[in-house]
Design a protein around this nucleic acid. Structure first.
Lengths: 290, 290
DNA sequence: TCGGATTACGTGCACCGTAATGATC
DNA sequence: GATCATTACGGTGCACGTAATCCGA
């Protein structure tokens, strides 16, 4: 068998045409490279070069060998990349969700459940999440429902209730609750992407004007002092400090409450035994489906 | 990059399950292998093993690495085989022909033209020869005609005339020539495969009984003393001694004479410049087509 | 004379094997 | 006690770099 370093040197010689240029590029000496090429020829067992006194050229065999060597080296790199990628994936839990709320609640929990692994989160549509779960891109996904898929295990993981944040001066600021119908036509400022809430709001308040802003602290500050309505949820309220001079009012509509399910592949259920136990404790079954 | 020897050792460990067994198989020492596996881990940059105090196991990464390594090693072997095959092919000239006659004449000529290469010959049908020429399995082929193919160069390389060999006692033994019609229905003994002559004989003498024999010296001896007719050609007569007690009579039919063309790929024409010059000298043009 | 390959030569270190140690069954 | 991996240690070979040589443009 032929050592990888020799193949690299062959490829370098093929690319740089002279031993000296290749040697420089490889940060080695010309004689070392010259010897390597001899050894390579020895290992292949066939002549690879045409030698004149001060010129070394690849012959037909050598050209083929260099081309194949490049291929083999590429295969090796692929191998290394694959192993490293596997290792990385073994050290992280990737969780995808249709909404940011449950991630806010669950990712710290996940981190403490699996202390040696890092948790990465991503927002996606349900249509994207299921195939990505199957491909192993995500180990866990959070949906609004139990998917009709017998490869997938699901467990309830809480709910989220939509609120509106209004300046105290707003005409509805005194209310205990509001309806989507009452708020339809209002202008909202919204920070960042909110997944499925987008669709719910669009459906329930077709005339609302929602200004989506990137999650940028400057904009955030502006929103804090502006008189525009913004959205909150029970989850976000638990995690972030209330803004002074504003009142928080729940939407009373049924569609303002969403229940979530945390899913994994059935084949991975054992791996996440501990995690699902935690979920069951934290979110005692309303209507489990598993 | 990772040295090939380390990958081989990894694969051996994967196969043999313990360092000691793998070390024995690799004809090296246990400590050496232990160190190699550490180095391999270092090179991959990720853990490949689960180590207990006196047990070494591949982890998930390691298993993937071993599987990929096996693949890479296989690629390497393929590379080596390809280069060696190319070298071999560069050292031999493979010539295919529709008939054995021209090979008898030409292969010694080829050998002396290309002293450093070995000549290998094969009998095939025209339908097989042309694709095999294009695939590089043959560098030269001999056909009865100029192929209608603009990738192929052709040059005349002589002709062959069919004769019959009869015992002196035969009723036609006194003739200066015979016709296929006169010989139709005769029993012939024929040594070995003769390519296109087969078809010519079958077409011209549909009632002849030709007993094909393997090229076996015992049978040859029998043929020499038997009274059965056999075939000869001007080429075979030039190369092999006449058989005593027999007369050699040419077929006078037009189809008993065949002209041959030596062909190569146009792209190889330059490589065979010298050879075709030799042919042109030996077989001055009757009706060249190139 | 310069650029490039090879040969000559001395050196260092990387790897090897033996032996010892540690650990588990 | 047997088996297996790892650590320790001393020795050797091999591959390296420098320098010298040779050759061709």
């Amino acid at each position: 068998m032929i050592e990888t370093s020799l193949l690299e040197q062959l490829v370098a010689f093929h690319d740089y045409k002279t031993l000296s240029a290749a040697a420089e590029h490889l940060m080695t000496s010309q004689p070392a490279l010259s010897r390597s090429m001899r050894k390579l020829e020895e290992d292949f067992g066939v002549p690879l070069f045409e030698r004149s006194r001060n010129r070394l050229l690849l012959n037909e065999n050598g050209i083929l060998a260099a081309e194949c060597a490049r291929q083999v080296l590429h295969e090796q790199e692929t191998m290394i990349a694959r192993v490293r990628a596997l290792d990385r994936s073994r050290r992280t839990i990737a969780i995808g969700s249709v909404a940011p709320g449950p991630l806010t609640d669950l990712s710290p929990l996940l981190s403490s459940e699996y202390e040696d692994r890092t948790v990465s989160t991503e927002l996606r549509t349900k249509e994207e999440l299921i195939p990505m779960l199957k491909q192993g891109i995500f180990q866990l996904i959070i949906l609004r429902e139990v998917p009709a898929d017998d490869e997938i295990y699901a467990s309830p993981c809480g709910s989220e209730h939509l609120y509106v944040s209004l300046p105290e001066s707003h005409s509805l600021a005194f209310r205990k609750s509001v309806t989507f119908a009452e708020m339809d036509g209002t202008e909202f400022l919204q920070i960042s992407n909110v997944g499925i809430w987008e669709d719910i709001k669009k459906a329930a308040m077709p005339h609302a004007r929602i200004y989506l802003q990137k999650d940028n602290s400057a904009i955030k500050a502006i929103a804090a002092v502006s008189s525009m309505a913004t959205f909150k949820t029970d989850i976000s309220l638990r995690h972030y400090a209330p803004e002074p001079g504003r009142v928080i009012i729940p939407f009373s509509d049924e569609s303002a409450v969403v229940h979530f399910w945390c899913c994994c592949l059935k084949k991975d259920e054992r791996k996440f035994r501990g995690w699902f136990k935690t979920l069951e404790t934290k979110y005692p079954d309303r209507n489990r489906h598993d």
